[in-house]
């Protein structure tokens, strides 16, 4: 199993989106004998982005050299960084924070500063700008772990509501069946 390999790398690829990027890249990695671990691919602003755990069965230079032709052809920028840790290190969230408001600079810093002050550990964060172009709305969903109660967190975030940002704190109840 790949988990016995402690030498994971984190491969980051960014570029203009088009069909077939994942298959081309992973085929090269497979050809090198690399294993893949956890991955997160998403389009951001119409761009292709992926972060991918790649086991370091090969020297970094060899992985980068092998990917260079594909990256060049597809116009992808790539990074390969050593990664401490490994698989099977999941933490389960117990709190969800939903934020929405007229888009303005500083919403993320305001919300996350308050959460950090409460010892809230953000495990997942996704955000988007919705609404009309003239009236953008910033929407953010956070899932994380906190020992504080819903009431305590809601109370700490309440000042934001007064400033026109809607913040909802709710439990994440993971069902094990």
């Amino acid at each position: 199993m790949t988990d016995t390999l402690s030498d994971w790398n984190l491969l980051t690829l960014v570029g203009a989106d088009r069909p077939g990027i994942v298959s081309r890249v992973t085929r090269v990695l497979y050809g090198l004998g690399c294993n893949l671990g956890e991955a997160s691919m998403i389009r951001l602003g119409g761009n292709f982005t992926i972060m991918l755990m790649v086991s370091g069965a090969r020297p970094d230079a060899e992985i980068l050299d092998a990917l260079a032709p594909v990256a060049g052809e597809l116009g992808l920028r790539l990074h390969l960084d050593p990664l401490s840790g490994g698989l099977h290190q999941h933490l389960l969230p117990n709190i969800q924070v939903r934020v929405a408001g007229a888009d303005r600079a500083g919403i993320v810093a305001d919300v996350t500063e308050i959460l950090a002050g409460q010892g809230f550990n953000i495990l997942e964060l996704e955000s988007d700008v919705a609404g009309e172009r003239e009236r953008p709305v910033y929407i953010m969903n956070i899932q994380g772990y906190s020992d504080q109660t819903i009431e305590t967190l809601s109370g700490a975030l309440a000042p934001l509501t007064e400033r026109g940002v809607s913040v909802d704190v709710s439990p994440v109840d993971v069902l094990i069946g």
Partner: peptide, 13 residues
């Protein structure tokens, strides 16, 4: 929508 895990699927939700 809700998050689930399972005795038959360890270490994944």
């Amino acid at each position: 929508m809700g998050r689930e895990g399972c005795l038959s699927v360890p270490d994944y939700t």
